[in-house]
């Protein structure tokens, strides 16, 4: 098992270098001149050239690439000039926001989608099934930017139930003492109920917005694989034992149908952890997604490259974790 994990990690390394190479090339292709951005629109051409030389941007592209690889190999992710911090520091301060949003939306998706998927399969063509199918359709078809705007219009502008889309916590409320960086957890740990309530209210819209697509996919997946599993012989055996239908479905059915579902949850989680560019931008969420957006807008190469790489690493590790979980859930899967 351990050997298998180590082998998988070894296989990831060339992938990461490939990703680093591709993002490096892609950022150079982006329109916009970083030297001009750093120096400012009004700067004299001589000054712009000076900045260009200072940042090594006047070097041939292969030299720049070589410098980048050397830097990466020494564990340095570079410096984000537009924030004035090393990228790793920016990442550390912004990642908790993305992590919190992702966790809440994934949990929300799971607690709604799994029961709904099970009900839809157990009572095929019932009201549950129709709701599940409608949600699956709506969730995959609805563009996030549009849904986000509608939510803001309804819950903030019209009903005023939820706070303005202005980040993780209201300006007049002090964020909880930093422990994990997740406001919900931190405010619970420090017993700060005011901050807890406010951060939950701030989370509601972006988390729902982000979870809807995932919810749709998981519901579909659970429904489909459950329908498949319920046709199996061992379900008939379980029924013939005289155990309750609830146990038949939730014990004998669910574990077997959970394996394909797990893949989807893992992939979605990895995907969302990379920062949702659209959701974070709409709700001014100070996470990785909005950081990358800002970096692209000002042609700040280092953070774009670094965040892409970090997302890839997270994604790869979550995938590995899911593969390992297969082995735990299904005794037929064994890794050497």
């Amino acid at each position: 098992m351990l050997l298998y994990i180590l082998r998988r990690i070894r296989m990831m390394i060339p992938t990461f270098f490939g990703i680093a190479f591709i993002t490096f090339i892609l950022t150079r292709i982006l329109p916009g001149d970083p030297a001009l951005m750093i120096a400012g629109e009004q700067a004299l051409p001589e000054y712009v050239d000076k900045v260009r030389a200072e940042y090594g941007l006047d070097q041939p592209i292969y030299v720049q690439l070589w410098e980048y690889v050397k830097q990466l190999a020494s564990g340095n992710l570079g410096f984000a000039w537009h924030t004035g911090h090393p990228v790793i520091e920016d990442f550390a301060s912004r990642f908790p926001a993305t992590l919190e949003l992702t966790l809440v939306s994934i949990i929300l998706a799971i607690i709604i989608a799994i029961p709904l998927g099970i009900l839809a399969a157990a009572f095929k063509n019932s009201i549950f099934d129709y709701v599940a199918r409608a949600l699956a359709f709506f969730g995959t078809a609805m563009p996030i930017f549009w849904l986000g705007l509608l939510l803001i219009m309804l819950f903030y502008a019209n009903l005023n139930w939820l706070p303005a889309p202005s980040g993780r916590i209201s300006e007049d409320i002090l964020p909880p003492t930093q422990i994990t960086g997740l406001y919900i957890v931190d405010s619970l740990l420090s017993g700060d109920m005011v901050a807890l309530k406010d951060s939950l209210l701030h989370l509601a819209m972006p988390a729902f917005c982000l979870s809807l697509g995932t919810m749709a996919i998981i519901t579909k997946m659970v429904r489909a694989s459950m329908l498949e599993v319920l046709k199996q012989d061992f379900i008939r055996t379980a029924r013939s034992k005289g155990i309750r239908e609830f146990v038949v479905i939730c014990k004998h059915g669910l574990i077997n149908s959970f394996i394909p579902t797990l893949t989807v949850i893992g992939l979605q989680f990895g995907y969302l952890l990379g920062g949702s560019v659209i959701t974070e931008s709409i709700f001014v969420w100070p996470g990785i997604g909005s950081y990358v957006t800002d970096s692209i807008l000002v042609s700040d190469y280092a953070p774009i490259q670094a965040m892409t790489l970090i997302s890839a690493v997270l994604y790869a590790f979550i995938n590995l974790f899911v593969d390992v979980l297969y082995g735990v859930l299904d005794p037929r899967v064994r890794y050497e």
Binding site: D233, F234, N256
Partner: peptide, 10 residues
């Protein structure tokens, strides 16, 4: 079918 009548995960 004894091959499929038992639950594979228990």
């Amino acid at each position: 079918e004894p091959m499929t009548a038992l639950n594979p995960v228990f």
